[in-house]
Structure formats: structure tokens, C-alpha cells
Write a protein that binds this DNA or RNA. Structure first.
Length: 186
DNA sequence: GCGTCGATGGCA
DNA sequence: GCCATCGACGCG
């Protein structure tokens, strides 16, 4: 049984959503083709108090989408060359989001999706998709109640500047997948 | 297998 | 002057 993920599901807090999205499937309809990939790694960004979260900088032009309704895409450029794909989570205004870090292609399609920058490039996620409603028909997620991932958690990657928040175990991954980008360090 | 480093551009 | 990254390179 597989069904499209709805607004009410995205409205869960980011930590719960990040865990629940492991094993779900990204669907991108692009140039008359359909690309599907199973999510194997995510990170939760908990809102303005979370020093690793962009929303901790407050409402700016960049972070505006994070403070909007859940279930929209938050896409931004990092290091001048990589796009990050996030999903807005929580109640409207809470500034939470889930970063999609890694996935594995489904249906015989071949791609390396084991990292947030590689994932957006291979899936064709563009900056123009910032703010896109993910319950539409172009880019959406499916939940498969049959697939049971082996979920583990660890600290988030690349946020060592975030004080006490850097240590919190807000990264979730499917330990049975080879596409996970980082294995936990002790 | 692991550490280091450069690429590259939007943002505050 | 930062970065929610990646891949190339040098080790030995």
C-alpha cells in the first residue's frame, strides 16, 4: 500500500517527520519522465532555537519559506554550487524543516544519490522549486506501509558551529542501505 | 582509508 | 566572511 503524503503528515514536528520519511519515496515528474528514489537519510532542523537551522537567523528573504506552511520545498544554494532539498515541517510559523540527505534510485534507474548535493543534481531539483507545494503533481512523496527500514540516528553533518545543538541526534538513516552518506562516528 | 584543500556564489 | 558539500590529491 502506497499513498501520497499529505499536508497533515508534513505538519508533524521536524524530528518526527525526519524519522517517518525514511523509507518513503520521492517522485519527480520531469520532461515526460518519472524519477523515483527511496529516502535513506534525513536531518531535522528544529526552528529558531536550533542554532544549526537557517531559521535561527530569523525571517529573511532566504528563510521565509521555512516559516510558511508545512509540505513546501525549501531549496537553497550552498558553497556556490550545490542545492539542498528540504521539506518545511511543523505548524505554520515554527520555522522547522527536514533536509533530504540521501536516497537510492528505484525501478532500475541508476544514479548516485548518497549526499544532499548529489541527490538534487541527479534528481533535477532546481532553485526555482523553492516554495513548491509537495502535495502537487510535479514533485511529491509516497509512503509505503510495507517497507520497514532499519532506522538509526546520529548527529547532523556539517553543523559543528551550532554549540550544544551540534551534538543532538537529529539525523536519521536506514542502516540497511548502502547509500547512506555518513556512518556515525562512535 | 583518511585528512586536507579548493571550487564558487548567495547571503547577511 | 561565512557556509546543512564534493571530489581530487597526497600520503605510505
Amino acid at each position: 500500500m502506497t499513498r501520497k503524503i499529505t499536508h497533515s503528515f508534513y505538519q508533524q514536528d521536524a524530528e518526527t517527520l525526519a524519522r517517518d520519511l525514511i523509507g518513503s519515496v520521492i517522485v519527480h515528474r520531469r520532461r515526460s519522465r518519472i524519477y523515483r528514489a527511496r529516502i535513506v537519510e534525513t536531518e531535522a532542523y528544529m526552528g529558531p532555537d536550533d542554532l544549526a537551522s537557517h531559521s535561527s537567523k530569523g525571517r529573511t528573504k532566504r528563510t521565509e519559506v521555512m516559516f510558511g506552511p508545512a509540505g513546501r520545498a525549501y531549496v537553497y544554494l550552498i558553497y556556490g554550487m550545490y542545492l539542498m532539498f528540504n521539506i518545511v515541517a511543523g505548524v505554520t510559523g515554527s520555522g522547522q524543516a527536514v533536509l533530504i540527505r540521501a536516497a537510492e534510485p528505484i525501478d532500475g534507474w541508476k544514479a548516485d544519490l548518497s549526499g544532499p548535493g548529489k541527490l538534487t543534481r541527479a534528481l533535477g531539483i532546481a532553485r526555482s522549486m523553492n516554495g513548491l507545494d509537495l502535495t502537487g503533481s510535479r514533485l511529491y512523496l509516497l509512503r509505503n506501509s510495507r517497507y520497514q527500514p532499519q532506522i538509526r540516528k546520529a548527529k547532523r553533518i556539517g553543523v559543528d558551529y551550532a554549540g550544544e545543538w551540534q551534538h543532538k541526534k537529529l539525523r536519521f538513516f536506514d542502516d540497511s542501505s548502502a547509500a547512506v552518506s555518513h556512518r556515525p562516528g562512535t
